[in-house]
């Protein structure tokens, strides 16, 4: 399974994601520059966290128009797995691959912490190695993680089981319905504010995040070989 990690100017979790794939899965992974336009040789895309283009205008607003994003949209349309973490989640919302938007935390502070997260849907390619209702501990680090969508969109997210993660305990940013991560209707595009790539070994404080990467590989092995 080949992973691409697009790097925008200002991305800063790119190599954490690359190390997570190498260390946990031992699968090939390559950094991809934001000017690249062809991701056809990859099976999955990880949009990393950071501050693409300095978060100018809005988080993810400029990255959305970079050449690599056209290729990410093609990959998503082809059913490949696409995950956006933190700033990557913001980019996915800005680009319309996921509904809603991420706004300033309701308390205006940057929040950096290890946060309990509840698995709300383990029937996705990103969570199939977890149990439904399982509470995992994953770091968060964001100032703009306050997920917002209107009521009609929220009803649709619920009806289609697109809410994949909710904050357990205190909501760290004021997000609608305690949402920490959502997927698209097809289930192959996931956006989440917490950083699973920062929780892959015990010495990091938690290794709960490694099962997200294992889930992706497990799903890919079960679903792509038949092609």
């Amino acid at each position: 399974m080949r992973f691409a990690v697009p790097i925008f100017p200002g991305s800063n979790c790119d190599y954490d994601c690359i190390h997570a794939v190498e260390d946990i899965l031992g699968e090939p992974v390559a950094p991809v520059w934001h000017h690249d336009t062809d991701l056809s040789s990859f099976d999955a895309v990880i949009l990393p966290g950071g501050f693409s283009y300095g978060d100018y205008l809005r988080c993810g607003a400029i990255a959305r128009f970079s050449p690599v994003m056209a290729a990410v949209k093609e990959a998503a349309a082809a059913g490949k797995l696409v995950i956006g973490i933190c700033n990557g989640f913001q980019v996915l919302c800005e680009s319309g691959l996921l509904p809603g938007a991420l706004m300033r935390n309701n308390h205006l502070k940057f929040r950096c912490d290890i946060q309990p997260i509840r698995i709300e849907n383990n029937q996705t390619p990103f969570t199939c190695a977890y149990e439904n209702g399982q509470v995992i501990r994953i770091p968060i680090a964001h100032g703009e993680g306050n997920y917002y969508c209107d009521e009609a969109t929220l009803a649709e997210l619920k009806a289609n089981n697109q809410i994949v993660f909710r904050y357990a305990g205190e909501n760290p940013n004021g997000s609608v319905d305690d949402i920490a991560g959502i997927c698209n209707k097809a289930g192959n595009v996931l956006g989440m504010m917490p950083h699973p790539e920062r929780a892959i070994f015990d010495w990091m404080g938690s290794d709960d995040g490694k099962y997200l990467f294992k889930s992706m590989l497990q799903y890919w092995k079960e679903n792509s070989r038949a092609v």
């Binding site: 919302c93 938007a101 706004m103 969508c149």
Partner: peptide
């Protein structure tokens, strides 16, 4: 398209 996000 760019300057505003119609969602919010």
């Amino acid at each position: 398209k760019v300057l505003s996000n119609p969602v919010i």
